[in-house]
Every structure is written in structure tokens, then in C-alpha cells.
Nucleic acid binder design. Sequence first.
DNA 1: AAACTGTTTGCACGCGCGTGCAAATCATGT
DNA 2: ACATGATTTGCACGCGCGTGCAAACAGTTT
Lengths: 355, 355
Amino acid sequence: MLTETGLNGPPIVNRMCAVPKPDSFDNVTADDVAVAAGVSRWTVNRAFKKDASISPKTRARVITAAQSLGYVPDLSAAALASTRSNLVALLVDDFANPHKLVMLERLTRALRSRGWDTLLVNTLDREDTAPALMNASQRRVDATILIGIQFDDEVLATALGARRFKKLIIFARTSQNPNTISIAVDDEAATREIAHYVIQKGYRRPLYVAGPETVSAHLLRKETFATIWQDRFGVVPDSVSVARYDAMLAEKVALEALQGRDAASLPDVIVCENDALALGVVDTIRHRLGLRVPEDIAVIGFDDVPQAESPNYRLTTYRQPLTQMSNYLVDVLESPDTTNLDRKFLGSMVVRDSA
Amino acid sequence: MLTETGLNGPPIVNRMCAVPKPDSFDNVTADDVAVAAGVSRWTVNRAFKKDASISPKTRARVITAAQSLGYVPDLSAAALASTRSNLVALLVDDFANPHKLVMLERLTRALRSRGWDTLLVNTLDREDTAPALMNASQRRVDATILIGIQFDDEVLATALGARRFKKLIIFARTSQNPNTISIAVDDEAATREIAHYVIQKGYRRPLYVAGPETVSAHLLRKETFATIWQDRFGVVPDSVSVARYDAMLAEKVALEALQGRDAASLPDVIVCENDALALGVVDTIRHRLGLRVPEDIAVIGFDDVPQAESPNYRLTTYRQPLTQMSNYLVDVLESPDTTNLDRKFLGSMVVRDSA
DNA sequence: AAACTGTTTGCACGCGCGTGCAAATCATGT
DNA sequence: ACATGATTTGCACGCGCGTGCAAACAGTTT
């Protein structure tokens, strides 16, 4: 029987066998590369820095040495030593909206292709927003990006009160808060375009389906639509509000709003704050009310999610220039300025069959 | 007129005015809290550590001081100093599949609620997988999680060759690679259940719609289905492959596979590797072929994405226990073991109207 | 009261790299 | 060959915290 414990014999040998050279090759640092390349450590790090002052041959020599040793610079240490981390936090709370996946893709693509890493923070619930912001700040992020709905003035105050927030960016949503940077589509212009389309197509009994209300950051769509409609026809259009951007919930709310009405009192067009709602509305019209889209009730969305294109929905909607917006976001990150960075973008209407 | 420049006078005063105390309040460190609370810096950090050896009163005093100063521990520095970062990288390449959004939500929820942060890395294209892995390693992640399709043996070799990968987890997909940890649904059991359902419902002319092929990580669904069918009926069922998990593309492929056939040669059921494909297939059956689901052709999916429940699709599908899988993933992260961590989970069939 | 045990606190050193400047090297013109 | 300016390289110090151990302290027993 082998002596497994050290009780009846010297355990030292055993231990040495068990741990010969544990992870002798896992921490290749710039120093190691430096001796291999015959330069100083600082030169090694320069070789990996974008436009550092280093001669091409030295850089080549260093890179070669680094590759043979398997060295890559440690961004974690770099972040600690400098004031920049090239890291941003992305706070999301609204995972029911399929458009979020598109936004995530576009944002992470733009960020990564320009050297930025993304910390994805799931804002678990309403109360968790402030902790989530704290969490982000603990990782020394250069900016925090909000793409959701659960943030109000109080939360923003917390965020801005906490230090280390170099930039607080509200993406795809308009904020009046002077301390945040808002990168969004021009909701008023977009809604104007939608409203004119609705009017021009001859619809006269619109129902507006809005999403949840927020305090600090707005989609001005509903208000703009109401104003335009009132200016033109003297009446405020009907509207209902859905507590989440969730097709399933929109379905229920739309059903409650529409069932039991006779044909004359039904709307002839339903304008939705976004596609997530619109898809649910279309389903309700067809499968709960047994009516046709657009013949009985037309539907208009916003965002142009992938499914909007499917032959099943063929949703008329409005597309935000997400790629452009994402690229501008990276511009903002790289800009030394801290003010006057807000920007609105113009999207384009996508006319399909639903209206 | 005031002397604005230092040209005709001592500029020192001016400078001091311009920069009184620039950002004197942005870097609150543990040392600051230490003097405020009358303890050593180490005690301060202990107060913020889960089960550190510290007396309750001292902790309370420190926390109070910390709050009034707005201090939070710097995880970036903590990661540098220790061997753990409580950070994982999540590599995603497959943003067309709506199920990814669900997975992202479940994973980030489980991770964050147990103190882990998530680095979301968008694997831009096939060639970018290795750089993406490198990128992750540069941030000292404790583990890298792969939830996508674009990784083959070569890429895994690169990943495993690079150091600093404590754990390489393949989520929702089975891998045979002994150096990875695979957390997935039991595809064989699931497919068996699906196949038996198909047989029991009397379908006899199945078409299998598979996704892209990968080398290292498999969904064993197609193979299992084929085997079962052959064992039972002596023939290998028809199948087609879609290059991406994308409803739009599945639509096209399905159309090519089905159009021009007469009723007798059409399949009576289409079994899809996942819902992303199934949704496209349903659309094709209805809107391109003008047939009914399930009366003319039944459809079965996999994943139970949110839309599967919509009255429009009512998709019969198979649900993975994502929450359970995500929690197990965190268990794995927190486990000191490095082997024998693979695990398969049983999901459950969700029978709706499409089959 | 002394001795003992278990708990709490303090500290030297290092994690890997950036900043800012000084020293060294190179390229060019006379 | 020498001076001049431009480019390249080296280095002291610090970023904020963790590890592991030793010192100090509190609580209990004889």
C-alpha cells in the first residue's frame, strides 16, 4: 500500500512529485520578452502600442520574440497603470425586445473592431440599476452605455454622483440630462415621416401603442405623433401603453384594447413605438380578432428587426442607422471632449405590406 | 482688463486658479477609507471581502466610512494582484439566432447574481475567433465561454495553446475535446424524444433541416434522428443543411428543397435543428408554398424561443433548461476542479400546434 | 492572575504595465 | 571628422489591491 498521507513518512517527496512545475509557463511577461529580444521591458511594450516611438526593426524583433514565447500584453495591468482601460460597460435590461440583439451585435462589432472591449451588464431588475452602475465603475470602464429603459433621474444621479464615470452614454434614446451623452435617432423627424405616411395613405382612425414610460430618457414618438395628428385633425389619437417591449405582452394589451369593438370603432391603423410591440399587435389582429393586416387594420412599427422582413409580417417600419450610430459612439469614446457630444441621426422608412 | 495670460505677470497664480483641485475626488482608494476609519488599508479591503476574518463592528465602521467617501474596491487592481478576476469572456458569433438573446440573458443573470462579470466578445467572422480568444486572455478572464458555431479544432488548439485559459467552456453544445468543458442539453435523449413523438403522431416522410456543420462541437441531433429513423424504418430520412441559424436563410433553403414537388413527395413533417430554422420553414410552407401547418406539413423546432409561443407559430419544440445550465456554469467557475466538469442536462418537449 | 486558545489586525512585497523625462543612438550637413 | 537635430531607448516611480505570515487582542480556563 502506498503512503498517501504524510503521517508515517516524510511527505515532502510526495508533494514535489505532485507539483513538479505547476504552471511555469503561464505568465509570460514583458520582461521575459525583453531579455529574449535583448531590449528593455519598455521597448517591448512600445512594440505593442499603436503609434509608439520605436524603430521598425526593433519592433519586428520584439514581436518575433513575443510570438515565440506566447506573450500578449496584459490589458488589465495596463488599465491599472494608465487612466484608460479601453473598456466600456453596456447596461441592458430589456432582453425581451429582439432589437436588443441587433443593437448588441452592431455595438460590439464597432467597439471591438476599433480596439474596445465590452462588459455586458444585465440589469436584473429595477432596483439593480444603481448596483449595476457601481459594478461597472469597479472595473475602471472608460464609459458606461445605457441601452434600456429602467433608468430614471434618481438612477442617473447615483451614477453621476459616483466617480470614475468619465462618460455616460445613452444609446438609441434621447436624454435631456446635461451630464449624459445621448446618441439616438431623431425621433421627431422619424415620427413626422411616419405620420405623414399614415395620413397620405388615408388612414384616419389611428391607435398608438406606446411602450413603458421613463423619466430621464424618452422616445418622443408618441408625443410627436399626437401633436402632428392634433394639428392636422384637431383630435388626439387613441393610445395604449405596454409595460414592456415584449410582443407577448403587446398581444394581450392590444387584445384588451380592441376586442368587443364593432368594425366602425376599430382603428384603421395601429402605429407602434417599435417592432417588438408591432409584431404582437399583428398577431392579435390576425389570430385573436380574426382580421387581416393591412386590409382591416394596418400596422406600423419602428426599428426594422429581422423578423419584420419575414413573409409572415412584411412589416412597414422605420430603420435606425445603427452602424453609423455605433461608429459615432466609438468616436465619442475616443474624443477628448466631454460636452456637446449628443447627436441625432436620421433613419429611413421601410415600406412593406403591413401599412 | 484682467491679466489672462502669464505674459506680463507671474502666471503661477493663474494656473492655480484654473486648476484648483482638478479631480481631487475621483480616486478614493482604500487608504483614504483607512485613515477615515482609523484602521489599516488591509482591514478596509477585508471589510469588502466575502468571508474575510474581520470583526462585525470594524466592518461596519469601515463600510460607513467608505460610503461617506464614495469608495468602492477596484476590481481591476484586485484582478492584477490575485490570480482570480471574477471575469469571464463570452464569445458569440451567431447573432442571427434569436435564441442567443435568451442565452445571453440567462447567462449574464446567473453570472452577475453570483458576482461574476461578463466580457461580451463579438467574434466578427470566422478568422476572428482566434484573435477574439487572445483578446479575452488579455483581460485576465478566469474562463472563456463559447456560445456559437465558428470554432473548430484549429481554433481550440490556438486557444488552449495560449496560456491564461484556466477554463474553456462550451455552452449549449457538445464537445469531445478533452481540454474543454461542455455544458449542454442531452441532444441524443432530446432527439429520441422528438423522434418518438414524430413516429407516434404517424408522420412517415420526415425532412431534417440541419444547421451549419462544425468540427469540434456538435449538436448530435441530426445524426441521432437519422439513426433512430433508420433503425425503425430502414431508410435514412431526407435532410438539408442551412449555413447559418437564420430564419431568413432557412426560408430560402427550405423553398429550394420543397418547391416543384407534388403533394405525394412532400414531407409530412419537417424536423429542425432549432427554432431559428423552424420559424423560417413555417414561413416558407405558408407563404411560399401556400400550404398549412400542421395539416399539410408539420414542423418541429428546438430551443423554445419566445416567438415559438406566439399565436402565429405555436411551435412544437424542445426546451433546454437554460437557467439550470447557467447556474451549473457558475458552479463550474467556482469549482477548484478542472476535470470531469462536463455535464448534460435533460430538457422537456413543448407540444403546441405545429406538429 | 497566568496561561492558553482562537480571533482580529497590520505589514512587506509583488502583480504587469504607463508616464514623463533623460540618455543614447542615428541621420544628415558642413 | 564634427556638430546638429531628430529619433529611439532606458528607467524610477506608482497604479490599488492580495498573499501569507506575524503581532496584537479578546475570551476562556485553571
